[in-house]
Amino acid sequence: MPNDGSLRITPRPVRRQVEDRLREAIVSGRFMPGDHLSDRMLCDLFGVSRSVIREAVRLLEAEGLVDVVPNRGPFVSFLSPAEATQIYEVRAVLEALAGRGFAERASDAEISELRGVFEELAAAGPAADRVALLGLKRRFYEVLLRGCRNAYVARMLDQVLNRNSQLRATTLSDPERLPHTIAEMRRIVEAIERRDHEGTWEACRDHVMQAARVALRILNQQAREQAEASRARASAAE
């Protein structure tokens, strides 16, 4: 019987667990852009030491999910319209690659699983909780990335989707967006069910570009409002 330790089960480090749970809290919209991630609050939330929290925050800062402001601490990152444009450009290509790979290589069971998640999302409707909607979209992409059978595309798109999470929350804040999202995702699923590789590519790319159009309109409006508020504060201080 080999005794090299290769089959031994080892628990994940606490820091890794905190990192994963904090990332999920940001991606799911529990923590929104601009929220202050104070050491005390995170220590109480996760029940760990300040050193563990700071290491997890440092790693999420490297991913762009957190900004650490000198003398103020860490905050959930905001995305500027320029940054959002770049993210959507990259996401459009990666998502189209993942969709085409899924149409080519996914099993029939995975296609049925994708259809099932989509039907849950379609049935949720605009009255559904935003966090629940984001969770359903997350599950949709988990199936898509697993079934595309391209580990590099899956890894890169997963990272982009993490960075893109607050943008998905932004687009869902538009009450008119959800029906269009469902129609666009239906087109993706139906192209996959036909094993239409190029049709899936186009449907995935179009879905991302439509989401980008809505998100950038909202972000540009927010940027204008923030600029006006800054000018008003500066005038009041004079």
Rank of each mutant, 00 (worst) to 15 (best):
Q226T: 05
A169K: 02
A62N: 04
V18L: 07
F118A: 00
T200W: 06
A223Y: 03
I218V: 15
F75R: 08
I26T: 05
Y88W: 06
M1H: 12
R224G: 00
E238C: 04
L37E: 08
S77A: 15
A223C: 01
T10E: 15
S80Y: 06
G135V: 12
L114E: 03
A103I: 09
D44L: 12
A128H: 10
S173Y: 02
S230Q: 14
R138L: 09
N164V: 02
C204S: 10
P2G: 09
D35M: 06
V131G: 01
R139T: 07
D158L: 03
D39F: 00
V57H: 05
Y88V: 01
G99S: 09
F140C: 03
G116H: 13
I182T: 07
I192S: 04
E89Q: 13
L145R: 13
R115G: 02
V27M: 03
R138H: 14
I188H: 04
L145F: 08
L97I: 02
D174Y: 03
M41A: 15
D196C: 07
Y152D: 13
E55L: 10
V48Q: 05
A229D: 09
R187F: 00
R163A: 11
G199Q: 06
A109K: 08
V143K: 08
R23M: 12
A229C: 00
E228D: 12
A229V: 01
G199V: 08
R195W: 06
C148P: 13
S235Q: 12
R91W: 02
A212P: 05
S38F: 04
W201R: 14
R21I: 01
L134K: 14
C43P: 00
